[in-house]
Each structure stands twice: as C-alpha cells, then as structure tokens.
Design a protein around this nucleic acid. Structure first.
Length: 213
DNA sequence: ACACGGATTTTCT
DNA sequence: GAAAATCCGTGTC
C-alpha cells in the first residue's frame, strides 16, 4: 500500500547540499508531472549521483558546454539531456552552487496516472516496468528537453515538481556502482536504490560498443 | 533469468 | 569521426 504523500514541495535548500547527501534522501520522494491530460506521480526508487568536474562519469568532467549549462546553475532545477540518438534522461541539480553536480533519476513507481504513462510506454509488459530505467522514466512522464532548466521546487500544478513524499527508512537504502558509466570502474558506489523494490532497474556494467563499419 | 547486437542522432573531440 | 549516464527484440539456458 502507498501512503498518501506529503504534498509540500521540496525546497531550494533541500537541493542546496552536497549531491551525495541529497541522492539517497530522494528515495521515496514523489515527482509530479502535470500534463494536459492530467497528472502523473512517481515515487522514486533508484537514483545516481554525478559530482561535478572531478567526476569522470559526469557530463561536467570536461567543463562547461551548451549541453551541461543547467548543471552549473542553481540547485533544484531539472537537467534533461538526449542520448543514444533516441532517449532522454533527467537529473535534479544539487548544490553547492558552481559544483555542477546532479542526481540522475533512474527508476520509480507510478502511483498516480498509470493509464497516461501506459500510453507512452506501449512496450512495458506490466506497470512495474513503466519507469524501470532512466529513459523509460522520462517516457512515462512525458519529459524531454523542453523541460531542461525547469524549476523542480515549484507548486504541484506546475509542469514539473518534486514533492516531499515519504522518505524511505535509511536501513532500506542500498548503494553500489553506477550503471553503464564509462571510466567509473565501479569505484564510486554512487547508485542508490530501495532494497527489494520491484521497480528498480537491473545493474549493467559499461559496455563499449563496436565501431560501425 | 540472462546475454547479445542493432537502432539512431546529438554532442563533443 | 567516435562515443554516448539506453532500450528492445531475439536467442539460449
């Protein structure tokens, strides 16, 4: 059973902390995506931290570019990028300011608006797969680059908001190497998920792809 | 349940 | 020109 989420939006101060502190604290929180057809709400079950210019896995590793601009901006905003020629992934920017750190939203449980999410996730075999993976998550929520830079500390009826929700108990938080990250080498255990949750995506190591002929 | 390869185009080197 | 914070269908165990 899902407890009724606390409807209070997360504050700028919540995100204005080191990303390794914010990331596990996001588990169990609720996202609200308001669309013309109605709201979709997602309870976060899996996230990953990316920590600025000193993190080889981060988009900010080689400094500021047009794409990662939002990562350098104020905390509490949404960073959306396009990848593999087909997919979008979304992050929440964290403090401290100028650090270019963010949390990738990897998976969650749809608790409101599953019928809307199913229309965008035709290949999902069941509702547990609606947002089981970072690109599936953005598909389920109808998020693309139009939301890049959007405020995540807004009211629940804005296009996108993060709600306080019910934070998961600390003893349910698991952590391990990030998924599919080149050069990470499994050194940073910066992937966080809720133990035994059926909506968490499977771990995959980074696999370099064969050169096109 | 798990492994493999193709898809597709933006972004940066 | 090469790689990319992935997904999906297909094949095997």
């Amino acid at each position: 059973m899902i407890a009724t989420p606390d409807r209070t939006p997360l504050t700028r101060e919540f995100f204005d902390r080191p990303v390794l502190e914010v990331a596990p604290d996001l588990l169990g929180r609720v996202l609200v995506r308001t669309t013309p057809d109605g709201p979709i709400e997602l309870r976060l079950t899996e996230v990953e931290a990316y920590d600025g210019e000193n993190d080889p896995g981060s988009h900010a590793y080689r400094g500021r570019t047009a794409r990662n601009e939002v990562m350098y901006g104020p905390p509490g905003h949404v960073y959306v990028y396009f990848t593999y020629g087909m997919w979008h992934c979304m992050n929440l920017v964290c403090g401290p300011e100028g650090r270019a750190s963010a949390v990738l939203l990897r998976a969650g449980e749809v608790i409101v608006g599953a019928e809307l999410a199913r229309k965008r996730r035709v290949s999902a075999r069941n509702d547990k797969e609606l947002a089981k993976g970072p690109a599936r998550l953005t598909m389920a929520l109808g998020v693309d680059r139009a939301l890049d830079g959007a405020d995540a500390c807004a009211a629940p009826d804005s296009p996108f908001a993060t709600l306080t929700g019910t934070p998961v108990a600390p003893d349910q938080v698991r952590s391990g190497p990030r998924t599919g990250v080149a050069g990470d080498g499994g050194i940073h255990p910066w992937r966080y998920w809720i133990g035994n949750d059926p909506t968490v995506s499977p771990y995959r190591a980074h696999t370099p792809r064969r050169r096109r002929t």
